[in-house]
Amino acid sequence: MNPVHKKFSRRARVATGGAVLAVVALAGFGAVNANASAPATSSAAATSAAVPARVTTTSTHLTIDAATEAAQAALDAAEKENQRVTVAVVDRNGNTIVTLRGDGAGPQSYESAERKAFTAVSWNAPTSQLTERLQQAPTLKDIPGTLFLAGGVPVTAGNAPIAGIGVAGAPSGALDEKFAQAGAQAVGR
């Protein structure tokens, strides 16, 4: 047995061990309590700094109301000619804002309308014009998410694309594009 243990009785060793455990427990509780009451700071907040205006940009986007109005105008134009189409409006980044599927529109029209809108806003040109560019650059059609068929038109503000409108489901791309133009014109009213 250890000579130090011989000096203390069993009762003294138990009492000392209990006291040590109590001190350790209270210290741990105090640390937890202090952490619980201290305000939380994230490392991102601690290292954030004001960014000068020269390193940021501002972009213009359609409101949901304007996008819905444009989509409805395109759908109304199609319905006047008894065409069953789907209309999609995407923002400058190609994200869908609104899609309206007309009564009786084919199942393929939903994705086609979104892809035409995406293509129009990506190149800031009607998709009917872009189909002509394929003759000089046929690999353009390989870019994911694009569809080089007539029926998509860009919506611009200050000559910069802010949205795309795509229509699909009419018997011709020329009709799809005519209805998409009606939607774009509704934004300007």
Rank of each mutant, 00 (worst) to 15 (best):
D142I: 06
T146R: 11
Q181V: 15
A150H: 01
A174G: 02
L21G: 10
V20P: 02
P154T: 09
P107F: 15
G102Y: 04
Q83E: 07
N33H: 10
V155F: 00
I64S: 12
N159K: 15
L26M: 11
V167K: 01
K7E: 08
Y110K: 13
A36S: 05
N95I: 13
A53C: 05
L75T: 03
E111I: 13
V4M: 14
Q135V: 15
T63W: 12
A184I: 12
N124K: 06
V23R: 05
P3Y: 10
A44E: 10
A34P: 01
G28L: 11
T41V: 06
R10F: 14
A184G: 05
S48Q: 08
S48I: 03
A163P: 07
T57S: 11
A67L: 11
E81I: 02
T63N: 07
V20G: 07
A71S: 07
V85M: 04
L147P: 00
R11S: 14
V20R: 09
E114D: 10
E132S: 12
Q135R: 13
G164R: 00
H5K: 14
A180R: 01
Q136T: 13
T156L: 05
G151N: 02
A117T: 02
N95R: 15
A170H: 01
P161E: 06
V14P: 01
A186F: 05
A150P: 00
S59G: 12
A34D: 02
A36I: 08
R101F: 08
N95H: 14
T127I: 11
N159S: 15
Q108W: 10
A36N: 07
S122G: 07
A170C: 05
T41N: 08
T60D: 13
L21S: 07
A53Q: 12
F179Y: 04
E81H: 08
A120N: 01
S37R: 08
R115N: 12
L62S: 11
A50Y: 01
T156S: 08
